[in-house]
Computed example of a mutant assay.
Amino acid sequence: MIRIAVGAVVQCGDRYLLVNKKKINDTQNGEGIEIDEWDIPKGGVKEQDQSLEEAVLRELHEETGSSSFELKDKFEEKIVFDFPVELKSIIGFDKQETTMFFAEYVGDGGDLSPIDEEIGEIKFVTEEEFVEIVHHCETVEFLKKNVWN
């Protein structure tokens, strides 16, 4: 079974927005799983989302507390990956297909405070820092191919 998701590469000047994910709540038992990884804002599309654009704006707001984002583009390529074996039975999905958007942060930084308990910290990083700390190699490879080429 494939989880349909959305994600955003968010830029502010020459920096990129990252969130420190502390928990995965989308589990079949509802208990969640503790994690500690840096990634771009992304998450599953929900039934109430009217469009992928609405879904990514919702995810951005949940994970950053801000609505100060302008969607600039939707990438043709998606990030697709298999979940680790130990997660598949817990979350009920074998893989994830993430439609990616490019967005610009237009706020002043004062509105960045996660409202989602899954997020511990938010920060903007350089391209070099991004490559060093982002947990998922698929995300780094996506940016190398589609943003930094």
Rank of each mutant, 00 (worst) to 15 (best):
L18R: 05
F101E: 06
F102W: 05
E104I: 03
I90M: 13
L57A: 06
K123V: 09
V106W: 08
M100I: 15
E70S: 10
P114S: 15
F102V: 02
I33A: 03
T27A: 02
L60K: 05
C12Q: 11
E37T: 05
L18H: 06
S113G: 14
V10W: 04
S66W: 00
E86H: 08
T99D: 14
N29C: 12
V125K: 03
V125I: 12
E117S: 14
I90F: 07
D116V: 00
E34L: 08
Q28F: 01
D39H: 02
F93N: 03
L52M: 12
G92F: 05
E121Q: 11
Y16I: 07
V80P: 02
I33Y: 04
L17Q: 04
E37L: 07
D73P: 00
K23E: 07
G110S: 15
I115T: 11
G30E: 01
F101P: 03
I91E: 01
F69D: 09
I24S: 01
V56K: 13
E117I: 13
K23M: 10
E86A: 03
V125W: 05
A55F: 06
D111V: 05
K72R: 14
G13N: 09
V10P: 00
E121H: 12
K95R: 15
F101I: 12
E77K: 14
E97D: 14
I90V: 11
Q96C: 15
F81W: 15
